[in-house]
């Protein structure tokens, strides 16, 4: 058990988080969850994960802000981050644009919904 890598999932929709948790746990990882950017930072402070799957569009603190905070701190800058975004959200809100994704310091980004096999492959490439 001890050698299981810890993955933090951050998304404001509990059902979405549950669905991704099933996928990630099935890939042989331990999972913790948080429901907005602020909670995500608290979870990281409590127990440092090996990787964070971070949704962009969230209340309180969105994914970009949380990502910037994590990358701006010496203790957390080395945690790989996969940003999740729905292309539709980028188009309809214009708040989170393609350029934001490119300019973000996150290691990777994936469109929603996440393909189970694809997600596990990406996680594996960053944590091993």
């Amino acid at each position: 058990m001890a050698d299981k890598k810890l993955i933090l999932l951050v998304d404001d929709d509990p059902d979405f988080v549950e669905a991704v948790r099933v996928i990630v746990e099935n890939g042989g990882y331990e999972v913790t969850v948080a429901y907005d950017g602020q909670e995500g930072l608290e979870a990281v402070a409590e127990r440092k994960p090996d990787l964070i799957v971070l949704d962009v569009m969230m209340p309180v603190m969105n994914g970009h802000e949380a990502c910037a905070k994590l990358k701006g701190s010496k203790e957390t800058e080395d945690i790989p981050i996969i940003l999740l975004t729905a292309v539709a959200d980028r188009v309809t809100t214009s708040t989170y644009t393609h350029r934001d994704m490119l300019e973000s310091e996150a290691e990777d980004y994936m469109p929603k919904p996440v393909e189970p096999a694809e997600l596990l492959e990406r996680i594996k490439s960053w944590v091993s």
Partner: peptide, 17 residues
């Protein structure tokens, strides 16, 4: 949209193993 996006992700999860 939001609930539907969750449903979409859950359908993926349902098919695992």
């Amino acid at each position: 949209k939001s609930p539907l996006a969750s449903i979409e992700q859950m359908i993926y999860a349902l098919q695992i193993n």
